[in-house]
Amino acid sequence: MDNEPTIGAQFVLRLLENPALASFSPLQKELHIINFLKVNINQLYPTLSSAGYFPGKTKDQIFSMVYESLKQIINKSLFPHLKKIITENIDFSFISSLTGSNGLKNAMSEQVLGFLQKLLQKSTARLNFLGPLTALDLAISDKYIDESFQRRSYLHFELTKVQKLSLTQEETKNLIKLSLLLKTSVNLLAVGGDVNSQEVRAAAVQNQFADKVLGALESQLDLIPPEALKSALHSNISFLESPDVEATARVAAIFAARCSNFRQFTKIDRGADTPDKSWFNIARRNYKFYGFDSKMLDEFYKTAAENGW
């Protein structure tokens, strides 16, 4: 009975060692293992319920125990990775420009990290964090924002004139990164850790719900200004239903979706278009389904096409 966590951990470690998962990030590995268990639990059950594993346990109990071990193992690599992103990839000094007051950068980053570590105990949050985390890892927003500041077309207009951000190019990129990082905070009010839950998906959130979460979020992330929190939360809202959603939120929504099923192509097949260009073109046709800003997608599509991304 006492050694069940150890058995669960050993089982998870064996799954993680599988070469098929070698190229994936920790959270992607977690998702693949969860899906594997969900699909194959019936076939695995006779073995997993045997004396060497979890005798006398039901399928759900076994699933929960294995998942708990999986989370703990993944967290060992996920949290240091998150810390690195927060401390090295995001410069919180943009918050001073946003609010006009000086904030403590270290305190902010520590608060965000602590918040995420707590939030990512929730299964739905973990699932929805995959896209934003991959987007942050790949710094995908950086190259597109750099391009948009050069082009000075739709996105630049939306950022500077509509959203009225008085931030530099670098500060804007950091705000978008923070929006990506905190996008999953929309799951803050999600109840329990049911991994089968699909209660919050991209662009499936209503304005009122986001406002409700904002209240809770402000109390936990009091060092982060509401503008940044709104940008993060609103990245879960459909642009078609709320046309006044912030441009940074729209960008975060698109890049999180871009990276949610991200496949790293080591070699692009001859005759195929480039990955980003293909994805943005598909997204342009599905913009209503996902609630994306189609003009923004058009701009990203052109940027990807021109740069061979």
């Binding site: 693949h32 293992i33 969900k38």
Partner: peptide, 11 residues
């Protein structure tokens, strides 16, 4: 959420 690179033959 039902897709996985792992298959039962791998285990």
């Amino acid at each position: 959420e039902t897709y996985s690179e792992l298959s039962i033959e791998d285990i």
